[in-house]
Every structure is written in C-alpha cells, then in structure tokens.
Write a protein that binds this DNA or RNA. Structure first.
Lengths: 339, 339
DNA sequence: CCGGTTCGATGAAACGTTTTAGGCGCTATA
DNA sequence: TATAGCGCCTAAAACGTTTCATCGAACCGG
C-alpha cells in the first residue's frame, strides 16, 4: 500500500540515499557492483519514483498540456496525435484537456495546469486568443503556443492554417462552377476560424458583382447545427435559395448534406456543398464531400516542436509564427457545373 | 519568473505560513480581517499553489487517468466525455492517454501514471485485460476500472457492454432479412470485443444449419482496413460472395461501404451492411448505416463513478461489474429483405 | 614517501506544501 | 476568582526527491 521510498531502498541496499538517486539519474557515476545492488533492491521492494517530489525539487513537471475545443472533433484528435509523437519522443507526457468551447472550463483547466507547473501549453483558445489568462501563464514563465488562433501575437509562438485563403479557395471553386447564390454556414463568429473562412469567402466574391453570399449563423460546429441551418435555407423562397453551400467545417457540411438529401434535394445537381477540414468521413459521406484540407497532424507536430524549443531555450527564445497553406479537395458534392 | 510561494505570501500579509495555508484550505477557521489581508497578498503577488508540493504532502494526486486504444475513435471520445463530466464534478482532473493499441506505449503510460501517483486509472487495455502491469497498479493501491474488457475479474471493477449479445442482435437481424451467406469483418481477434462480437454472430447462426459465416480478419479497426477487407470479399467467386456483412465497428463498415459502392455494388440491394458502435457519422454515411449502439457516454460516466467510489472508500470497497445492453439501430444499409 | 588527482560514496540542504500540537488572550461558567 | 472552553494564530515536522559540497581511499608520478 504505502509504496517504498528512496530511503528504504538505500537502507535495503546498504548505501546512502544519495547513491540511489545517482543510480537513477546518472548511473555511470556509480560503481557497477553498487549499482547492481541498488537495482536489485529497487525491484525487490517494487520501488516507484515519486514524481511529485521530483517535480517539487525540479521546479517544473515533465508534462505538456494541450487544450482543445472539442475532444470528439476529428480535427483536434489528429492535432493531438501529431503533438503526441513529438512530446513523447522528447520523453515528456502529453495531457489532453477539453474546454468544450466553454470559456469557464478553459479557465479552470489553465488554472489547474498552472498549479501543476506544466512545462508548456498548446492551446486553441475559446474566442480570439488574446485572453488575459493566457498572458498570465506567460508571465509565470509557462510557454504557450497558440494553435490555429491569433497568429502574429508578439508574446507567443503560434501555428495556424491560412483560413482566409481556405475560404477563398472554396468559394473561388464554386464561382468557377457557375454558382452565383452561395451560402456560408457556420458559427459562432466569435471563433476566429469561422470569421476568417467567411472573410475569405467574401473576398472571393468581390470580383463578381453578380454573385451574393448569404450567411447562416449556427451556434456550434456540429452535425446537428448543420441540419438546423439547412432547414432555414430550405425555408427560403426558391429564387432566393442558394445553389451552393460552403460550410465552416465538415460536421456542419455533413448535417447540411443529410438534411438536404432528406428533403429530396439532389447534391450536387440541386445544391453543391463544400466543407472544411477534410475529416476521414468526408470521403465516405452520402455524397463524397468536397472539403478544404488542413495539414492537421503536422500542425500538432510543429506546435509541439515550437513549445519544446521554447521550454528548453529559455530567455534566448524568439517567438515564431508558422502558417500552413490549406488545399481544396474536390469531390462529388460540388463537382458539377451549374446549368 | 520564479513564482511566489506560500512563505512570501505570509510575510507580505504579516502572518505565519500556516495561516495562509488555512486561508486556502479552511477559510472559515481564520478571522475575516486576516483572511482578507492574506487574500490581498495572494492576488498582489500573483501566488499560485504548487501542486507538486501539495501532492507530495498528500501522498496522491487529484487526477484520474483514462487510457484509451485510440483517441481518434469516436467510441473513445464519447467515453472520455462521459468520464470527464463525473471526474470534473468531483473536483478532480481527467488526463487522457493514448495507447494506440500498442502494448509498449500502454506500459510506458502506466509507469508514468504510477510515478505521478494518480488517483486511479480507467483503462481499455490492449489485449484481454489481465496484464501483470495492471495488477501492479492495484498492488500499489491505485484503483483500476476496466472499460469494455475482462468483465468479472475479481480484483477490479469493470464496465462493459454485452458484445456477444450485440453480435447476436446484428446477425439475427440479417438472418431474419433472409441472408444466408454472411461475412464478419474485424480484427485483430486479440481484441476481446472483436472476438465477442464474432462469438455472438456465430451463436446466432447455430439455429440456421443452411447459413454460413465467413470471417475476414483485419489488422486494425479503421476505415482503410474495411476497404481492404471489402476488396478481398469482392475477389471471391460470385456464388461464394456474402450477401451481408457484419463489421466489428463502424469505421470498418464505412470502409466496406465505400469500397463496395466504388466497385458498383448496391447497398443494400446487392449486399447488406451492419456496423457496430453507431457513431455520429453512421447515419450520415453514403447509405445510412445500420449499427449496434452502445451507451458510450454512460459507460464513461459509470466507469468514473466506480473509480471515484473505490478511491474514496478505501479498504471497504467491493468490486462491481456493470454490464450494459446494446441496441440494434436498423437503417437503410440492411433494411431490405433478401430476394 | 608525498602531493595531487580521480573515483565512489556520503550527508545535508532545499524544494513548497499540509497538518498537528500547542500557545495566547478572552469570555462564560461554577 | 479560578478554570474550562473557545477563537485565532504560530512553530515545527513531515512528505520524497535532487544536488552540491565534502570526504576517504586508492592510485600515480616524481
């Protein structure tokens, strides 16, 4: 029950406490015979290092945290997998926290992480990414890397994908296919990606005076939200109804697709759909979904690398901002010229 | 940089160190005026509790870990969400670890968690769930709850869904629809669920001497694995080719669906498909997918409850095994009588 | 044989909490 | 008036590491 401690190991091996510690941390500084004796004592007593004590002494832990908006969103799970690789290769541990797009929960998590003196935090913050509590972490010397948010802030590193460009790619494609009444479905706009993708979409339209962009705001980025938005669009008079829908993410796009099909519209003949994120299921959807792909795992890997770099380089660190370019994947859901 | 500690707060507020601790932990035992003075000092110095020290003193942490086979699998993310609710309501923190179905990584995680003296571990272990390193945790006094594995072991609590029954439900349904050549796609069989669902499927066939069950083993439970398996099935001579496929999970089922459709087969007319898990995307697939639904979040919640219960009740705890019943959701992919 | 060097091991200090025993001053009770 | 009780606070010990200064022994060259 009460696990053995280093002192008991020392006594059992007939050495001093410091020697055991040396066996654990610098094995080559202790004579082979003694080392073996200590090792034997360790296995015999089933000794396990107490990380709290170790951390207390060291002043910081060997864990890195990633705070995501939604653990169940494939975008974030891929991010996590990427970060995981890098962090674990560095001998650290990655803990995943879920803010659920709830600012209070995010806050709670950050407070807890601070108390744990984590080595650093990877975060996609709720909102625009310049919250005071992020600055607080930094003030306390905890490196923060912003993921997919607030690129260009001076006080922290960031990695992001160019969402404005992604929005533009999607809508350029729809315009090129002959669509002129286009809807953008997404929300809430307090999420920067939602706003940026919209900005890109709007920018694409500037060259086309005859085209219009209708916005259907949702309260979250889920399949259910997509279904509701589709209902609203279907309630419009036929002449105002958009012929193409660009969605802020694939979950919403799948919801829209589902509802449209259920109401008897053909995709892409009656309405074209383009999503965002290119999650694994996009290609397996009722109608394979066109989508804007982001290098998700790479995003996670890069973020983790920047973080570890900052954590180990200390004062000399210069913050960097890495921006990846998205890529449009055209599938059946939008691949038909508008008659 | 170097964060303030409790002693500095004490000096700043003109009280003893113990009093600060009391303000933090039993606020009502200290006089309002003093308390306020301490509180002011805390905010002024930006003091943050050091959890390592706290843990060291307490002997254990306030975190609970959940070790899953795949962070990106919706089954597990829902599990995590369920557990999260319960754990956070109890004022603890849930850390998510990903074994990636790799026994060595699982092992590494458990070692680390042990060093951290976590309060308890929720785990879906790689393999059959009676590994020696799980016993080691228990020997050290760390409660372990098995999730979806090894029901009935005497030394730990467990929660599970009756997978044998789930397999039976699925295949009973297919038989009832008139199918006689049925395939089971899934693997590796070292995963208990894969084996149990197969057992259920096989049991369902026992009453039908004229029906046969062909097994296509996969190396993992992914969409890609499903596609490969479908290729193999399609390579069979037409008369041996199954008219219905029951898949060990929805990811595989989506892969099969994708490949079958791509090769020109109609679902469900030429081949019926039933998946397992009823993930959110099942209903949004190319052909809405029949699937066996599990109460995923509830599974997570219950597991967490059992764990916390054990962690706080100590010696008096009696291990429990909770088994939930799955439910078949029939959608278009299998909803047509065999001609 | 002696001074210097190296190897291996030791003991003590320090990290920041929580907890416990106790002390002090006051009031209520006998 | 003594005393018990109470409210509020303090001082010190303990949790289990890591690290650093030190020390003895052995060895080597001169």
């Amino acid at each position: 029950m009460a696990t053995a401690n280093i002192k008991q190991v020392a006594r059992h091996a007939g050495v001093s406490l410091g020697t055991v510690s040396n066996v654990l941390n610098r094995p080559d500084t202790v004579a082979p015979a003694t080392r073996q004796r200590v090792l034997d004592a360790i296995t015999e007593l089933g000794y396990v290092r107490n990380d709290s004590a170790r951390q207390l002494r060291a002043g910081h832990s060997r864990t890195v945290a990633i705070v995501v908006l939604d653990v169940a969103n494939p975008f974030f799970t891929d991010l996590v997998r990427g970060a995981e690789q890098v962090v674990e290769d560095a001998g650290a541990m990655l803990v995943v926290c879920n803010s659920g797009e709830d600012s209070a929960r995010e806050r709670r998590h950050l407070d807890l992480l601070q108390e744990q003196r984590v080595r650093g935090v990877l975060i996609t913050p709720v909102g625009h990414g310049s919250q005071p509590h992020l600055d607080m972490l930094i003030d306390r010397g905890i490196p923060v890397v912003l993921v997919d948010r607030g690129t260009g802030q001076a006080s922290r590193c960031s990695v992001a994908v160019d969402d404005v460009r992604g929005g533009r790619l999607a809508v350029d494609h729809l315009l090129e296919r002959g669509h002129r009444r286009i809807a953008y479905v997404g929300g809430p706009f307090s999420i920067a990606q939602v706003a940026d993708r919209h900005a890109g979409a709007a920018a694409a339209l500037e060259d086309h005076g005859d085209a219009e962009l209708r916005v259907a705001t949702t309260t979250s980025l889920t399949v259910a939200a997509g279904r509701h938005a589709a209902e609203d669009l279907l309630a419009l008079p036929a002449l105002q109804r958009p012929t193409a829908v660009f969605c802020a993410n694939d979950l919403i796009a799948l919801g829209v697709l589902q509802e449209m099909t259920a109401r008897g519209l053909r995709v892409p003949a009656d309405v074209a759909i383009v999503g965002y994120d290119d999650i694994e299921f996009a290609g397996a959807a009722a109608v394979p979904l066109s989508s804007v792909r982001q290098p998700r795992e790479q995003l996670g890997r890069t973020a983790a690398q920047l973080l570890l770099e900052e954590a180990s380089s200390g004062e000399t660190h210069r913050h960097r901002h890495v921006v990846f370019q998205p890529e449009l994947v055209v599938r059946r859901s939008s691949d038909q010229p508008r008659r």
